[in-house]
Computed example of a mutant assay.
Amino acid sequence: MSGTPARGRRLRFDGWIAGLGTTSGVRIVVGHWPRSPFGPFSDVMLERADGERLLLAPTPGTADFIGATYAFDTVRVVPVEVTVAGRVWTVAAEPLRLRFATGGRGALGHLLRAVPGALAGRPAWSALTDRPARLLMPGVRTRGSAGGGRREWYGARDLRPVTSLSATFEGRDLGALAPVEPPVRFGFGSVPRRPAVTRVTTTVELGAG
């Protein structure tokens, strides 16, 4: 994507968001976007146990956009590679090495898969599901205000639990899989407390900032 998007323009990202906790206290959010205004890309948001928020993005353009939409203490532009082989995900984003596996979808996953994709991608649908999402998964929001005067909507289309994880950050083992606790603080909402991969259509409306 070239140039500066106009204020009020809505940008759509189709892909997956993985929210993971570890016994070391580090929480990780992986975005994997086969379809986006920037072309296919992946990114990693990481919050350390001491609260430092780090973004790993593959290009200056994606780093600028994500950094203006969410809040980080540190932003690094590094290659981010995500490989999905069946239920096993592998993420390489220096200084992070991550591998995790997903399990079978539960009742909520089946319910989300029944929602037509065209409907799930509409901001009005995300606004309608915001309250039920907050009741079912405390901390999760499907709409809200982002950085730079932007607005954002999440339309979930599938959900699978994460069942195992191995990860290192800067060469240190992050421990075993754990709940995402405390909630991550990159934006207006967190990911589910129980580690999961969510199929999602994200819409970002640009503001004045």
Rank of each mutant, 00 (worst) to 15 (best):
T4Q: 13
L20I: 02
G187T: 14
L11F: 11
R105Y: 07
R185H: 14
D73L: 12
A18F: 02
F100L: 00
L119Y: 13
R157Y: 03
L54S: 08
V78Y: 08
G109A: 00
Y154E: 07
G109R: 05
R151H: 04
I66E: 06
G187N: 01
G104H: 11
A156F: 14
A196E: 01
P132M: 12
V84S: 14
H32L: 02
V26S: 03
A85C: 09
S42Y: 11
R7G: 05
R199V: 05
S2D: 06
T22K: 07
G39T: 01
V29R: 13
E47K: 04
H32Y: 12
G104M: 14
V184S: 05
L56M: 14
T83K: 07
A107Y: 10
R193N: 04
F65N: 02
R193K: 02
W33V: 10
R76W: 14
P60S: 13
G109H: 06
R9V: 08
A124H: 08
I66N: 12
R97T: 10
L11P: 00
S42F: 09
G144Q: 07
V88K: 10
A133N: 10
E81Q: 15
T102Y: 03
A107R: 13
A63C: 05
V91D: 05
W125L: 12
M137H: 13
T23C: 14
P183I: 07
R9H: 14
A93F: 09
P183H: 10
L119C: 03
G139T: 07
G117D: 12
R87S: 10
G175F: 06
G31H: 03
V75A: 05
V77F: 11
A57F: 02
V26P: 07
A133Q: 11
G8W: 00
T23E: 04
H32Q: 11
W89E: 04
L112D: 09
V180F: 05
V78L: 06
R35M: 08
P58K: 11
A120F: 07
G15T: 06
T74D: 15
V197W: 12
G86F: 05
G25I: 01
L55P: 12
L177F: 00
F13Q: 04
P79R: 00
S24H: 01
H110W: 14
R193C: 00
A49C: 01
E94M: 04
W89V: 11
S164V: 06
A68K: 15
G109Q: 09
E181S: 14
V197P: 07
T203C: 12
R141Q: 08
V184C: 02
D14I: 06
S42R: 02
S36Y: 09
T90Y: 04
T23W: 06
V200D: 15
G144R: 08
G86M: 08
L159H: 05
P58Q: 10
A156N: 12
V44L: 08
T59I: 02
T201M: 04
I66W: 05
A120Q: 12
A114G: 15
R35C: 05
S145I: 03
G3I: 01
T62K: 14
R87D: 15
P161I: 03
T90F: 10
P5A: 04
G86Q: 02
E152T: 08
V184Y: 01
L119P: 13
E152H: 11
A167G: 05
G149D: 06
L128A: 11
D130T: 03
E205V: 02
P192V: 13
G106E: 09
G109I: 00
T69I: 06
M137W: 09
R10L: 01
S166K: 03
T83P: 05
